[in-house]
Each structure stands twice: as C-alpha cells, then as structure tokens.
Design a protein around this nucleic acid. Structure first.
Lengths: 354, 354
DNA sequence: TTGTAAGCGTTATCAG
DNA sequence: CTGATAACGCTTACAA
C-alpha cells in the first residue's frame, strides 16, 4: 500500500523520484536546472511534481547546497515614512536578485539590535541591512565592528544604511546619503533668501549620525557665508510630529527671535507648522519653514514644504545591490547617495522687520 | 592540529561538543533548554559557545526539529500608509510570539502572488498573511481555496486580511475590518449634517472587496434614510493622490452638483482636497470632504480630515495571533474588526443654496 | 544521461 | 543526567 500522507506531511524528492521512476538525484537536477537531463526524463519528473503538488524544502536545500537566498532588513520601525521607502528598496532589490527578505524592527533598542543580528546569523542571511541612525558611541561602534567581523566569518555581509563607515579594515558595506551636503545646500538657500536668524529644530541624542550630519551642514553653511550661527535649542527630542509641535511652541513662548526654521525632518516640520499656525504666524510670509527627507507628507501640508530630497528607496536598493555583488577583495565599501533641495512654498524671504 | 576555520565557515554543534567535552546531543539540549542538564555541564557548554562565538544553524534546526518559526507577510506594497501599519502589526505580533517575519510584495500582480505562496510553502512559513483587497473574481477565489488547502497540507496557515471568507469548509483564517459598517456610519453622518447629494469618489475594479464593502455601506445608508443615491461616477481609478485629484477636477469640470465627497481612502481625499482648493472651493464651507482609513495624513492636511478610523496595526496583530493559536478543530476562522467615524474639520453642513 | 552514497547541522529516540 | 544513532530532505562528488 502506498504511503498515506497525513496533515503537515509533504511529499519529498524521494516521493517524486518514486513517482517518476528516477533517482532523487535526477529530480534534484531537474528542479535546479543546473545539470543536463534528457527531455523525456525532465517531463516525467515535472509531471510527478505537478501531480504530487511538490514544493521543495528550502531549509533542506540550504543545508545541503549552502545558500539561503535570504537578505535581512533590520530597521528602527516599519512605518516611519522614510524607513518604509528604504524597506521598499531593500525588498525590491532583494526580489530582483532572487532573494527573500526577512524583516525585523528594533524600536531603537540597541540590545534588541544585537539580538537580531545573532538571529540573522542563525538564519544565515546573505546580507544584513541595518537602517537608520545608530549611535556614534564608542562602545557601540566597537560592537558593530565585532558584528561585522562575525557576520563576515559566517559568510554574510553587514550593510549599514545612513551611518558612517566603521573603518577600512572592517568588512562592511556602508551606504549613506549626503546629510551634510543637503543641509548645507538648504541652509545656503535660506541664507540667500535673506535669513540671518535660523533655528535648527530637532537635535536628537548627540551622536546620532544622521542628525549630526545635518547640523554640521547647517553650521558649515553659516560659516561659509560668514554668518554667526544663532544660538540653537539643541534639546533631545524624538523625531515625531508632536515633538516638532511642542518644540516650536516652546520656542515661540520663549521669545526667541528667528525668521526661519530648519526642521531636521519633514515630520518634525509638520508639527512645527501646526504650532506656527496656532500662533497666528503665516508661512512663509512671517516665518519660513523647511524640512528634510521629502516624504509624501511634504506635499500634503499647506503650504507645500520646501525640503531636501533624499531617495530613500535607492538607498535600500543600493544597499542590497552592493552587498550581493561586492568584489571579492573589497573588504570595506562606502557609497554616498546625493541629496538636493526641492523648492516648494514654505520658504521665502524674511519679513522686512521682525 | 585543530580545525582551521576558513571564511564562511562556522563552528557547529560538534565543535562545541568537542570543546566542552560532551556529546552533540548535550549541546543541543543546553541550547534548546528543553531537557534537564547538570549545571556544571551547562556552564561548560555555554563557555564553549561563547569562546567559539557559536550560533546555531536555523536551517539545520528546522530540518531536524520541524518548526521554522517563521511567518510570511505578503502585501501589495510596503509603503502604502495603511499597509505599512498592517505590516507593523504583523511584525510586532510575530516577534512577540518568537517568530521571524518574511515579507514580500506583489504590486497587485496575481501571478506574482501565486508564485510567492509557493515560495512560502518552500520556506515552510507557519502562517502566510495576505494583506489587501484581492479580487472577487470566481477563478481567483477558487485558486485561493486551492492555496489554502495546499498550505494546510504543508502544515501552514493561510490568513486573509481585508478579504471576505472563502467558505467554512476552507482551512483559512480571515480577518477583516468592517468596511461596510464604517461607510454606513460615515454616510449617515453626512446625511445627518444635511447632505443629500454626496459623491462617492473612487470605484476601483469591480470585485475589489474593500471598495465594494465601502460602497455598499454608502448605498445602504442612503436607503435606510430613504434618500436616493445620486448618480455616482464609478470609474476605475488607482487609489492614489493623483487619481483623487484628477477625478475631482473632472467632476468639477463636468458640472456635476454635490455638497459632499466621500473619498474611498484618505489618500484619495487628499488629492480631492487639492482639486477643490484649486477650484476656489472652501472645505467644509462649500463642500464637505471625508475619507477612510484614518492614516497620519488625515491630520496633516488642512482642514484635518473627518474620516473612518481603522486600526490597521490591530488587523496585522490579530492575523498573526489567530493563525498561530488557532484551535485544533477550527477549520475556518473569521473575525471582523470594528471601525468608527472620527469627526474632524473637513465636514460640515451643506451650504444653504447650491 | 543517470544512479549511488556520503554528507550538510540539528534534533529525537532509545539506551545506559 | 548523558550519549550513540538514526532520521530530516536535499545536494554533490563519484561512478557507471
């Protein structure tokens, strides 16, 4: 009597081989398509596959063959507008390269991050893409270096998105966008409009590299125009809408003068916008407001937001592409993706007199 | 001489066993923690694990033990605001249940969808969560039923999010939100404000279940108030901002009268808002505008959008929870998640005379 | 072109 | 509490 498949019981290569009157080896070869097999045999095998509704066992395949065809994507959060686009880029490129995409979130917890990397080592992910500003803290960086080495030893590749390189002797791929350059360009734009008193809104924990880069560009633009940087309110705030709102309200209540606000992200800018509106200030007539990221929200607010465009999806795609096609001898890779100012309606010349 | 580990070469349980002077079995037991092991032995094993920087091979474990601890998430698109939140729910619940999350996108291609399901069968995902309106097409549904059975046979579980059940004899879990109820409530709200000529904006391909439900609620509300449904422009449009914009512009150009627009999603509403503003119409003084989904955008636009709240994240969480904890004998499961109207600033009474 | 047999790294079974 | 040994399902030399 034939084998009675129970529930949760799948046919195996052996079953197919039996049904097609060939050896398991032949079945494997037909399925992999990497070895000559006679047309007749192939047909018989395929027929058996169809009849048994056979699907191969990926785990077993990986064990026997080697490769898991899997890319991991570790991110702060799935729903942040920019992160989602990076994720989309990762997923698309992974798919384009015939890989599957494993996704995990850390919610900013370094401990969790560390755990996840080990999980990905267990999973033998071909590449581990980490997205979002990590900290610049020395111990943290050191640990990242260990991680990169550990992954490298496992035949995997660490990819850092939006973080600075770990060093040329560390096996990792780094893809970042030009935070400083974009902030420099945007600040210069505001200065060229006539602004001399610009608030940089949103500091974040010192050491968070994305923000640091943006602030650096902000300062450098002032310097290169020989304009003193007005005193900034560099308090740590989470980068959400609410923080932008509260920080701006505080600013207004504190009597601090300014003619423009450079929000560290579009989301923060949207919060600021609400606070400004509540205070009866018109944008851009009374105050100019600009953001960073150019997420869809930038078009949804009124007025539309002048911001720095970042191609988040490309960031994700590039991350995967580089990780998968790295040259044998490229130990450390580093790519910078350009950013540029997108002029919309939220910034204009400062009012005549403040 | 000891084994010289090369690149891409990981220590195995055997290596750990050797280093700790125990059998591989013991190592396995220590790692799994599901079997009594003496404290001393455990300590020795853990020490070896640390020294060798050993991480277990998940593929091998799955092969030997059975379970992959993996949940798959198949979705139209990662960046759609509602989808991203569902994804977040799936990921969070999966993580909470100690599972990993595999994510793939279909971009609405049923062929690709089919392929992905087979890929997930290969991966032995414990659950396959499909998100987003599939079609109601008979052949499609029939294929879904096959799929559900195939997954069931593989010991996996099909979860449909936001689609109607496939039948009580089909092994699948269905989680949907109450599209019809929400639309009914919202339409009733508009009617109670005095509106009698409401446009339903955004039809989608007939058969797309999410939209159908919403339109049904729209019609039913009219019926229950004994108000004739004004002729609707039910053209197929993609549900993006642009379509909302164009459709509204056409509507305005076509001379169609109305006092309110019920946009099928918030995104479509945001497009409509732009078109209305361009036409010099004030919202809500001249025209009321409501949406559906309550995504963050609803708070970003001016005026803030009156809309139907849907807890997308809960949808994702519920999907995973049900799939993982289904009762042994529950062949078909079906859960409906409630929706409710959120009143903001974009809807008011109709103008006195049109 | 096809088949045989030996792994891949882990867990489960069955003895001690 | 610990250890052999046989799976798990597939691939890949090595033979034929």
């Amino acid at each position: 009597m034939a084998r009675q498949p129970g529930p949760g019981d799948r046919p195996t290569v052996k079953d197919v081989a039996l049904a097609a009157n060939v050896s398991p080896t032949t079945v494997s070869r037909v399925l992999a398509g990497n070895y000559p097999v006679s047309t007749a045999t192939r047909a018989r095998v395929m027929k058996a596959v169809r009849e048994l509704d056979f699907v191969i066992n990926a785990q077993a395949r990986a064990l026997g063959g080697g490769n898991t065809k899997t890319v991991a994507f570790i991110v702060h959060d799935l729903v942040g507008p920019s992160h989602a686009y990076v994720g989309q880029g990762v997923e698309r490129q992974a798919t384009a390269e015939g890989r599957l995409c494993l996704v995990c979130t850390t919610h900013g917890d370094p401990q969790r991050e560390r755990e996840l990397i080990d999980v990905m080592r267990e999973q033998q992910a071909e590449a581990v893409v980490m997205v979002g500003g990590g900290s610049n803290d020395e111990a943290y960086v050191e640990q990242m270096i260990q991680t990169a080495r550990a992954l490298d030893k496992s035949g995997s590749r660490l990819v850092l998105c939006g973080r600075p390189p770990l060093g040329s002797d560390v096996p990792a791929t780094v893809v970042e966008y030009d935070n400083e350059g974009g902030a420099f360009a945007m600040t210069s734009y505001l200065i060229s409009l006539g602004h001399r008193d610009i608030v940089f809104l949103g500091a974040g924990e010192p050491g968070y590299t994305t923000i640091d880069g943006r602030f650096r560009g902000f300062v450098r633009a002032h310097e290169s125009h020989h304009i003193p940087v007005a005193p900034q309110r560099r308090a740590t705030i989470p980068f959400d809408r609410e923080s932008g709102y509260l920080a701006t309200r505080d600013l207004l209540a504190g009597g601090r003068t300014f003619t423009a606000i450079f929000a560290v992200t579009d989301v923060v800018a949207s919060g600021a916008l609400v606070a400004l509106r509540e205070a009866g200030l018109r944008v851009p007539e009374d105050v100019s407001l600009v953001g960073y990221d150019d997420i869809p929200l930038a078009l949804d607010v009124t007025p539309t937001l002048t911001t720095v465009h970042v191609d988040h999806e490309e960031l994700g795609r590039t991350a995967v592409r580089l990780a998968l096609h790295r040259e044998q001898h490229a130990l450390s890779q580093h790519t910078v993706i350009g950013t540029h100012v997108v002029i919309r309606d939220s910034a204009g010349p400062p009012p005549r007199a403040v």
